[in-house]
Design a protein around this nucleic acid. Structure first.
Length: 270
DNA sequence: CCACGCTCCTGCGCGC
DNA sequence: TGCGCGCAGGAGCGTG
């Protein structure tokens, strides 16, 4: 499932070939995503040049001459650059046709999103309330310590709250907490300053490693050129219930938090 | 403001 | 071999 590293890998992949190209047309085969794909998307995009691609959290912001195509990959979404006239398969919902390539959006579970915003000012409710970026200067131990004061929720759920911090989903939340030596069920407000420092470092390291490995994958994710990422081979705890901790050998345990599975080592994490 | 649970959707793995 | 079931999950939204 695309988390921040996968989205960033996609952004870089697309940015290598598409900017500067003009849209010849678009084909929307399935409009029913999280919100409906605009009915007039093809008419809107036709003739516009793709200038560049930005990212905010897990949203991709494709900057065209007159506005921004906002794309979220949801759970199972992917964007790929393909040769013109490549036949569409099941779940290939949207094509944006450029002169020398087609940008294809596929999303079996249709949790993704594709919306048009006029201009480049990112005036959209979905973007207004997003939290801070994990690679931004604001994200420090001091910030985390302050932000968690009074919060009774578990630190794992706090990390995954996109209105606080963007880009950390279920997989990397578990992985980051393992690296920081903090149990996922710990109440956010009980973290002392030094543990906040350590957690901030762990989040950055986890995301950096995932990015360097090309993003992770469960089953669905392919980067922009169609190559799967390989970070999943490096998971310390995610999906490893009952298997020995890679550090100390203690069996990894699982925990249900807010309808999500968390994984942790009862020995390495306190 | 905060915490929590529900919802969207499809593919896969499991048990029988 | 096939069927039905439960699970996976980002994030908005409604409720208390």
């Amino acid at each position: 499932m695309p988390e921040l590293p996968e989205v960033e890998v996609t952004r870089r992949g697309l940015s290598a070939s598409l900017p500067g190209s003009f849209v010849k047309g678009a084909d929307v085969r399935e409009r029913r995503l999280r919100q409906p794909v605009p009915a007039d998307l093809a008419a809107t995009l036709e003739g516009q040049r793709l200038v560049r691609i930005d990212r905010r959290g897990k949203y991709l912001l494709m900057r065209f001459d007159h506005g921004t195509l906002l794309v979220h990959l949801g759970m199972s979404g992917g964007l790929r650059v393909l040769p013109p006239h490549t036949p569409a398969r099941k779940h290939d919902h949207v094509d944006i046709r450029f002169e020398h390539a087609v940008l294809r959006y596929s999303d079996p579970r249709r949790f993704g999103l594709m919306l048009w915003i006029d201009g480049w000012q990112d005036m959209h409710p979905l973007l207004d309330s997003l939290g801070i970026e994990p690679f931004g200067a604001e994200f420090t131990g001091a910030w985390l310590h302050r932000a968690t004061r009074g919060r009774r929720c578990a630190i794992k759920q706090f990390l995954m709250d996109g209105h606080v911090l963007v880009g950390v989903g279920n997989i990397y939340a578990s992985e980051s907490l393992f690296r920081a030596g903090i149990r996922p069920g710990t109440a956010a407000r009980r973290l002392a300053g030094t543990r906040c420092d350590r957690l901030v470092d762990a989040v950055r390291e986890t995301l950096t490693d995932a990015l360097a490995a090309g993003g992770s994958t469960l089953r669905d994710f392919l980067s922009a050129d169609g190559e799967p990422g390989y970070f999943q081979q490096h998971y310390f705890v995610y999906g490893r219930d009952g298997q020995p901790c890679r550090i100390c050998g203690t069996p990894i345990r699982t925990l249900r938090q807010g309808q999500r599975s968390s994984f942790y080592c009862p020995s390495c994490q306190k």
